[in-house]
Design a protein around this nucleic acid. Structure first.
Lengths: 229, 229
DNA sequence: GCTAATTAGCGTAGACTATACGCTAAATCG
DNA sequence: CGATTTAGCGTATAGTCTACGCTAATTAGC
């Protein structure tokens, strides 16, 4: 029931008019799974929990979804949705910046997706549309295909890395305090403890850090691109 | 037995001379877990498998490790090891480049660590040393503390993002082919399908993509830093 | 050397997972 | 009215992690 990439991609649903009509739908299942993940985290998403929410038997889910792996992949592709349209004529720099900000907004809205995208997993059509828009943002430049791809991955990697401390307890939390509390930390981790001491690690203004990093990346791209479009 | 950060950080093992002596050690357990992950992937690492390799009962592991979560955290911190010493006087640019290349080498050697580092998890002392060295590489610059931190995270994010397609089947694999095989792909994902058509997505020369991205990031940093040290 | 204290090893059991199989119910087609 | 097709789902199986409590091995103090 639906590992067919074609159906997932192009929406050739083609509901067969024979047989018992479905009460459940894949969309409902995925939506409920996303709701659980948003509220309680990805690891609280189990087939049982999803079935309870939909008031159906656990095995009924498998009529609409191949298994948990596919369900999780669908969660991501559904939650991220189609990429924003960047075809406006603002020039590549602002287009890439918008792409980066939109990506960041997604991970802030659905923090559970962050570890997910690093996993080896099937890619969905919406995610492809994001890649496509990212590449499109660089269309006006004279970068080669491989360079454009590399550029999108630089931006994407930067966004993910920057969002992580915003989204996860451990980074901003008491963890650093434990490390830096020991007096020997000054000797062993001098740079980190200095940063910690002056409050630079508190992540109180994540937007500023993000914009700083973004401008760094864009500056680097601009130098490689040469001219602005 | 040992969620004590202190012991983990500073090696204050302080084996108590009373009681039955230990036949197992945390180091052995972690080493065996790493061996499994290297050979078969992280998800093949179970307490049972580790115990089998060590020829001991499953619950014996819990005398040396708090639980699976801590074990996995220890795997990463042990596998990555202490950061390379970058205190040579090559200037910040080459120091950051070395840091990035070393980070990439780690993920290539232990691909299972890639999804791991994106998870919300306890950070270990070796990982802190990497952060510290990364910050140290930028010591000669006039960047503020927060900016240095942001810079390290840009580089780190870039490395992770760039390594992912090198390490995972799905990215270089038949997945893209499925998407791009359909004639409608040209219309819906024009930029991606163009890249796919001319072979730019085959990831045949990952080093080149990596170096391209790295230079982009370094150029961006250089512009923010102004002078080279 | 004996006893108490301390620690390591680990078997059992419980509470979770995901999912393969096969049955039953509900719909349409001929 | 069958025959066919599909949906819903109960049961059972094979995993997972780990809390608890017992036994064994060692040392400290007497």
């Amino acid at each position: 029931m639906g590992q067919d990439v074609r159906e997932l991609l192009w929406g050739d649903a083609a509901r067969p008019p024979r047989g018992r009509p479905a009460g459940l739908s894949r969309e409902q299942i995925v939506a409920e799974a996303i709701a659980i993940a948003d509220a309680e985290g990805l690891q609280k998403v189990s087939m049982k929990r999803v079935a309870e929410r939909l008031d159906c038997g656990v095995m009924s889910l498998y009529r609409h979804v191949d298994g948990k792996e596919q369900l999780v992949a669908l969660m991501h592709d559904t939650a991220i949705g189609p990429a924003p349209d960047l075809s406006a004529d603002r020039g590549w720099r602002e287009a890439v910046a918008e792409w980066a900000r939109a990506t960041r907004a997604y991970f802030l809205a659905h923090p559970w997706a962050l570890p997910l995208v690093t996993e080896d997993r099937p890619v969905g059509p919406n995610e492809v549309s994001w890649l496509d828009q990212g590449l499109g943002a660089l269309e006006s430049t004279r970068l080669s295909g491989a360079e454009r791809l590399a550029a999108v991955m630089v931006v994407n990697g930067f966004v993910r890395g920057g969002v992580q401390p915003e989204v996860q307890e451990s980074y901003a939390g008491a963890q650093w305090f434990d490390f830096m509390a020991d007096p020997r930390a000054r000797e062993r981790f001098p740079n980190t403890s200095a940063l910690f001491a002056d409050g630079s690690m508190s992540y109180e203004t994540p937007e500023l850090s993000f914009e700083f990093g973004l401008q760094v990346v864009l500056d680097g791209l601009e130098r490689r691109i040469g001219d602005a479009a």
